[in-house]
């Protein structure tokens, strides 16, 4: 049956770690990641799903975490930018972003990386227009778009066909 309360107990698997946490029902996944779990890689900017700074991967797909209530994510697997590197170091996309000069101020980069990551998971060898379309939901005001798409292309080229 349905539940109804101002606070709600949920379980999330964040970057491979199971987390049980009580959340307010009106708090978004972005609020909970940043304020309750201390994962500040997801950024807060427009809060209307336009800029993509808060992008995370939820059950394999990118979402704007500002437009997902934390309770909706109950039972989900979430990848944030903090989950892209491991003890061996940066992932290939992260390194390509640095090599290609895709990072200026860096504020949009967590979201860009997660969108790129999900795009390549779905489509390992995307065309340039597919990359541009796939990353259009992540605004970069420094205007690194060409370098970002270069980094995604380079990562795809290095991946096995």
């Amino acid at each position: 049956m349905s539940e109804s309360a101002a606070a709600f107990q949920i379980e999330l698997t964040v970057n491979g770690h199971r987390r049980a946490i009580e959340v307010a029902v009106h708090h978004t996944l972005l609020d909970v990641l940043r304020d309750d779990l201390g994962l500040t890689g997801a950024k807060e900017c427009c809060l209307v799903g336009e800029c993509g700074a808060c992008t995370v991967i939820l059950d394999g797909r990118t979402v704007d975490s500002c437009l997902v209530l934390a309770v909706e994510a109950d039972g989900s697997e979430i990848t944030t930018v903090e989950g892209l590197a491991d003890e061996r170091g940066l992932g290939p996309l992260q390194q390509a972003f640095l090599d290609k000069g895709a990072v200026q101020c860096g504020f949009c980069i967590p979201g860009q990386l997660l969108s790129a990551h999900a795009l390549l998971a779905d489509n390992p060898h995307p065309s340039l227009p597919e990359i541009q379309e796939g990353l259009a939901g992540n605004l970069c005001r420094c205007g690194c778009y060409r370098q970002i798409t270069d980094a995604v292309l380079a990562t795809a080229e290095r991946a096995e066909r």
Binding site: M1, S2, E3, S4, A5, A6, F8, A24, V25, H26, H27, T28, L69, V71
Partner: peptide
């Protein structure tokens, strides 16, 4: 954001009733 009651029915009939 103001708060609200959150319901998460698992059956359609529950949702209709709510």
């Amino acid at each position: 954001m103001h708060t609200f009651a959150y319901a998460r029915p698992t059956l359609l009939a529950e949702a209709v009733a709510l």
